[in-house]
Amino acid sequence: MIDSPQPRAVKLIADLPAGAAALVHSLTGGHDFCSRMANLGFTAGAPITVRQNYGRGPIVVSVRGTLVALGRAEASRILVRASEA
């Protein structure tokens, strides 16, 4: 958000624009979901890049050298933090 007073440290993947890079902070949601995501490489500290995000509908994220499509609901359950440039 342009007008937010200060950049929040932790954001949802779903809120990142295309091209943004970040590190996975944590996962929220049920055990099955978190376990699948962790197996796919979304573990704490893993670098990710958002490849596509049109504000609605699914998004594409690259993680550990692969492209993963995520529904918006799923992308809203992954928290990320800024990666030190």
Binding site: F33, R36, M37, L40, P58, V60, T66, L67, V68, A69, L70, G71, A73, E74
Partner: peptide
């Protein structure tokens, strides 16, 4: 949940 890998 929609989670699907996109191949190159």
């Amino acid at each position: 949940a929609f989670i699907m890998e996109l191949p190159l």
